[in-house]
Amino acid sequence: MTDESSDEEEQAEATAPESVHGAPVTSSRGQKVLHPDRDSYVEVVGALRADGYVMCVDVTAVDYLLDPARDLPPGVEPQRFEVVTSLINHAERSRVRIRVQVPDDDPVLPTLFDEYPGTEAMERETYDMFGIVFDGHPDMSRILMPEDWEGHPLRKDYGVGTVPVQFKAPEART
């Protein structure tokens, strides 16, 4: 574990005016993270794909409703949702993570389906769990929950749900 001060130093180093394809770059525990905005998201991913990031490994999201403070490079406005996409470059053996801020009142993000068709299921899962709509996706439907389910379970304002525990024996039926 490192103490706070060295962590901050790392952050300061990482948030130096560095950018890839116009998106600010930070480092999270030594892992490369890009922060494009919503409009340039697909463009940045397309450029990365041309750079040799041949596979989209993962698409998921985080709901920052209860923890709005987080490390973001200057100029990136924090929003409630954050879509997290992981790409891998086999030739250079490197990974890159892309975090895009998605606001609560307009949870829409363009789909990556045209770049990586394999994001179809992952974006459906993200829609199912967070209610983030991927614009241009061929089949924006629920994947894990039943079709007629209401709500998006991994949102922070969606309860965990508990089963009441009975500590006493039930009273005898008459």
Binding site: M1, T2, D7, S28, R29, Q31, V57, D58, V62, R70, D71, V84, S86, R95, R97
Partner: peptide, 9 residues
């Protein structure tokens, strides 16, 4: 666990 995010594969 200190604040932050990480991916391991």
């Amino acid at each position: 666990v200190p604040e932050g995010e990480a991916y391991a594969a």
